[in-house]
Design a protein around this nucleic acid. Structure first.
Lengths: 191, 191, 191, 191
DNA sequence: AATGAATGAGCCTTCATTCAT
DNA sequence: TATGAATGAAGGCTCATTCAT
């Protein structure tokens, strides 16, 4: 019954998302998962054989639906705003915020010599941002001498905010002012 | 004998530093420590009663000697260079790099409602950097409209690089170009 | 399977009863229990998470079936004999005698500020005995001026014998002569 | 330095008495002793090599000075009062009450097949009490048909009160009324 | 005599994983 | 598929006891 199976799998992922979001990655045990999904110990192993496997599915699920908005024909400024809004949403998300879990997972991968996909994700985002900046330059919306460097710098700052959210915490106001600061480097922004 | 005791304690901290640096914070067990220091299970408990206690001492030790350089009478540019050099050193440090462990600890603290001291450290660094920028403005070395915002932005970017080092990895070249990018915002930099 | 589970639980209680009866309460470890039931270290924790929990179940089990006899319509003398016979049985019981364990547990509880239930048990027994004495007075079987005080005194003496059994030991003959002594205070007893 | 040695030994016994009185016998560790006496771990072993050894010395010390009163030429009633007062004192003693520790020790001994001396102590007390009763009979102070049985019964009741003190607790009023009840069996007592 | 660091055994508890049903 | 009892390894912690100084 693939359908039934999928429903079960989905249930696991949903509950696991909550768990990873509140406990991070390393702390979560198979027991945690079992006790929160309506499933038996043995049953869970029919679907997943480690917290890592589960986490990877949680991640895929989490990334789906990020690009839902239709941005065909959008201006560079619109694209940029959308991009930063997404970033802001991720940083400030109250429920099911996986930032800490992601970093813990990435740390664990690096220590085990595995590839966590973080590098790839950063590279992708970097490219997107760079393209947006280039487009803005061309359309005259932005004035950005070195789009590559600017994109890179922005991404590091965004990562800094994310990690800050997982440690000291960060307020929406702070995030906003940081985003404004970034944008001012290449465009006019009203406060 | 306090001297002997201190030597032992130092040995523990030294070995623990290596361990935390290679395994991060969460994964490390008292057993790991025991097996790497020439000490017995019970013996370790004479000095420390948890990995957290050990880690906190490792941190103190790690932070000692950061400010050794004599910076009396230095110019703003010199101070800034020193500050960034310290940051760069921390990011790229090959041996005993505690970045990952620090973040894992900070994450764990946040989850347990403890204070990891990260916020305080960031605030302090932010203040230092801001003062340097103000000083540079006054001496005419820098042109920086909003030192507070600039300092904040730089620190996030630095944090981003640190966390990147713990996940995807980062090259010296990349760090350098980021630092140059930052500095260009308020001063002339040759490549 | 609840049935299978119950069987296991019963096995644990049975073995534990033997252990507590031979080692008392304080000395018994989870390891002792594990090694005597055919169960694994972790397995035991599925049923009980401390020796105290196990002991409390051992006690309940031990007290079941104490009141089996049908005493409806019995005379005061019959009731008294039944009561004392029960006490005698408890004192002299060869197998699975939990007297020492009970006292050790009660001591431990007192030291920890917990309620061991001993007081309640004594109060209950005191009341039962008193009622029997009153009934005997009314039916003319006994002549007992102060049933409350007599009941209290008898219970202390019985407790004294119990504790004596756990320390110096006591013979059946001795118990019998004590019981006879007590009864003579308010009724005719042939040797 | 036998003198110095004795002082140290005395210190150990004094502190140990407090400890045994608050923790009972089984729970007390060599560590407890060490930490409460001003002595080193190794030092303690120069005097005693187990908690049992220490406890036995604590007991001897505790029993010394029990018979200080001069009872030469006392009447049976006086002797009895003195005896019961001593018992009452032991039961109600607030500070350094070793009742629980004694029972725990006696239980432990019985389980190990050792002789705890409890039996001997009871026999001795029984004999003393019996002699007092006989003497009272002869002087006409008491009317007690079977002094042996009465003595035995009284001692069990006293033991019952002691053990009760260690478990449920007992009030002075209760002890008093029990003592009065006992005495009424063979003498006139005003309330 | 005295110290207290050091040892290692022993018990506690939790967890990933298996397996009979 | 699904269950959940059972296992045993792993790590945490404490304690009696020893030993170099």
């Amino acid at each position: 019954m693939s359908q039934k199976t999928d429903a079960k799998r989905q249930l696991i992922i949903d509950k696991a998302t909550e768990i990873f979001s509140s406990k991070g990655y390393r702390e979560v045990t198979m027991k945690d998962i079992v006790e929160n999904c309506e499933i038996s110990r043995g049953g869970l192993y029919l679907y997943y054989s480690s917290t890592e496997e589960i986490f990877l599915d949680v991640l895929s699920e989490d990334q789906e639906g990020e690009n839902i908005e239709d941005l065909e024909g959008a201006s560079a400024a619109e694209l940029l705003l959308w991009f930063l809004k997404e970033q802001k949403r991720e940083i400030l998300k109250k429920k099911n915020n996986l930032i800490v879990a992601k970093y813990e997972y990435a740390f664990a991968c690096r220590q085990n010599g595995k590839n966590s996909g973080v590098k790839k994700k950063i590279d992708t985002e970097s490219l997107i941002l760079e393209k947006i900046l280039v487009k803005g330059n061309e359309s005259g919306e932005f004035v950005c001498k070195d789009p590559k460097a600017t994109a890179s710098n922005m991404l590091y700052a965004l990562q800094g905010m994310k990690v800050c959210q997982g440690t000291a915490g960060i307020t929406e106001k702070k995030v906003d002012s940081e985003l404004v600061y970034m944008m001012r480097q290449f465009m006019e922004v009203e406060d």
